[in-house]
């Protein structure tokens, strides 16, 4: 069963009681897979409780799909165990690498977009999907640099991976805005060249801003509300694609639950307005 075409929230354990007692109307909750890979304890108890009331989206940050090495077999096994235990409606990962030579670097690092890396990413997505026995969604990254060796636009790269492997896309609209702003390109053009029919989920999050001599450098930090230009881009996507499962990500300086819920309600209003306009 796919994720409901409704707003969802990134689950934070400090909000567990608020969610359990108020049972807010949310389409789904998303969790980082790596936080549930311990043997037991409160994380598993919380997840088992939440899944009774909500569809789950399992979001990985550690598979290093964009790295040169095959996905770690132990990590894939742990993901498979989590999926069979909690039966999430969706599994997603990033177009990025995070491990190198057996060491985990805990960041979503960028790759040049070339025929070589396209083949690598397709091979890894194939292996992930066949091992996990489900279709995955691949998320577009926030990037801060470009690479001279890149020969493919990011949107072409993503569309090729989706076309060749059958995976879906996780469209992070904030990441589109961050990357396009950083590289002085137009996010509307980026969105116009991504095949929206592959999009199985949308992410919306906040970003920070530094100023460079050439203009702003935006940093994807999930530490504040979604910015207005990102909401505007999101409205364009929804107007075109119709309602989509839409996650609010707020991972740092996590606010109280009502503040987070208000962001989800704003996404619901955008979807409702688009439906009325049709």
């Amino acid at each position: 069963m796919p994720l409901p075409r409704a707003p969802g929230l990134g689950f934070k354990s400090e909000h567990f009681d608020a969610i359990r007692t108020t049972r807010p109307a949310l389409g789904f909750l998303e969790v980082h897979a790596e936080n549930y890979m311990g043997a037991g304890g409160p994380p598993h108890r919380q997840l088992a409780t939440l899944r009774q009331d909500y569809a789950l989206s399992l979001h990985g940050v550690g598979l290093s799909i964009g790295g040169p090495d095959r996905p770690d077999q132990g990590h894939l096994r742990r993901l498979r165990d989590l999926i069979s235990r909690y039966e999430p409606a969706s599994f997603s990962e990033h177009l990025a690498w995070s491990s190198h030579g057996g060491d985990y670097l805990n960041d979503l690092l960028p790759l040049p977009y070339t025929p070589e890396t396209l083949q690598i990413v397709c091979d890894h997505v194939d292996e992930v999907q066949s091992t996990l026995g489900c279709r995955m969604l691949l998320e577009n990254p926030s990037t801060y640099l470009l690479f001279a060796q890149s020969t493919l636009p990011e949107t072409t790269f993503l569309a090729e991976v989706a076309g060749r492997t059958g995976c879906g896309l996780l469209l992070d609209v904030n990441n589109v805005f961050v990357s396009c702003t950083n590289h002085r390109t137009d996010p509307v053009d980026w969105l116009a060249s991504i095949p929206l029919h592959h999009v199985g989920e949308v992410h919306l999050g906040g970003h920070a801003r530094e100023d460079l001599p050439s203009g702003p450098l935006l940093i994807d930090d999930h530490g504040c509300p979604v910015a207005d230009p990102v909401w505007q881009l999101y409205a364009r996507v929804i107007a075109q694609a119709g309602p989509l499962p839409t996650l609010i990500e707020w991972d740092n300086d996590v606010p109280d639950f009502p503040t987070l819920l208000a962001e989800a309600e704003r996404a619901a209003r955008v979807m409702a307005q688009a439906a009325e306009a049709v």
Binding site: V61, D72, G102, D103, N106
Partner: peptide, 9 residues
């Protein structure tokens, strides 16, 4: 002694 896996726990 960097992390050997994404399980930071």
């Amino acid at each position: 002694d960097p992390p050997a896996s994404p399980r930071l726990s």
